[in-house]
């Protein structure tokens, strides 16, 4: 599903965010990526969604070589990959429901389709009772769940979550991870970037450890080893 071949990303002047990374993630996997701050985890996510181009190497996502993807094709890629970041990027003037609708509206989807999908994804993340609230009136965990719901509207094959629990307490964090596992059970490949030792240890899934832009660990049932 995701294949990185010899990927390097060097930011000017000479910051090696990633260096000669080889990685293969199969469809339906749940992979955690761990590593210290500034080791290139977010850079990896950015390469996968076409926000940055690699300095070297080859990236293939779902059989599509996106190494030198053109500006016009980036939107097509992003409709196949759901993304969740640490800071909940919700629009404060819209309800959670409207926030999720927005993602489909701006992609030109018809209202009938929007009306069908949005309640479904909100149900997956357990927000069916709070979907008409505004972001400021729900908890951080609920906001993050709305963001996950939004990432699901295109029914992506891949879900990238870059520190989705970073701003949450452990109870809320556990709930978010549960939702990610649920999504993974439906068949979506999940890539979770995290700092959270407990989360990783509880998951008992594949763990990839990055240090200074290099992959230093890759275990099928991994533990947080740093």
């Amino acid at each position: 599903m995701i294949k990185l071949e010899n990927i390097s990303k060097i930011y000017p002047p000479d910051i090696k965010a990633l260096y000669k990374v080889n990685l293969h993630i199969k469809p339906g996997e749940f992979v955690s990526i761990v590593g210290r701050s500034g080791t290139g985890k977010t850079t990896l996510v950015k390469l996968l969604i076409g926000e940055e181009r690699p300095s070297q190497g080859k990236i293939i996502v779902g059989g599509w070589d996106i190494t030198n993807i053109g500006q016009a094709e980036v939107p097509v890629l992003r409709r196949q990959i759901g993304v969740v970041f640490q800071d909940f990027k919700l629009l404060n003037r819209k309800t959670l429901f409207e926030n999720v609708c927005f993602a489909l509206q701006v992609c030109g989807e018809p209202q009938s389709k929007i009306n069908g999908i949005v309640p479904q994804v909100l149900k997956i993340v357990g927000l069916e009772n709070k979907m008409h609230r505004y972001p400021s009136t729900v908890s951080g965990g609920e906001q993050q769940r709305a963001v996950i719901a939004r990432a699901l509207v295109h029914r992506p094959k891949i879900l990238l979550a870059d520190e989705p629990t970073g701003n949450l307490d452990s109870i809320n964090a556990d709930e978010i991870i549960e939702i990610l596992q649920k999504i993974n059970k439906f068949g979506t490949t999940v890539l979770l970037v995290t700092h959270n030792r407990d989360v990783v240890n509880k998951l008992r899934k594949r763990v990839i450890t990055i240090e200074n832009g290099l992959i230093v660990g890759d275990q099928a049932v991994g533990k947080y080893i740093l």
């Binding site: 969604i49 500006q71 016009a72 980036v74 939107p75 097509v76 890629l77 992003r78 409709r79 993304v83 990027k89 629009l91 927005f102 993602a103 701006v106 992609c107 030109g108 939004r150 990432a151 509207v153 295109h154």
Partner: peptide, 17 residues
């Protein structure tokens, strides 16, 4: 800025943005 960022993230086409 925020809207545009979200639109890009969820795959809105450039002309739509």
């Amino acid at each position: 800025k925020r809207e545009i960022g979200i639109m890009k993230l969820v795959g809105a086409s450039n002309w739509f943005i």
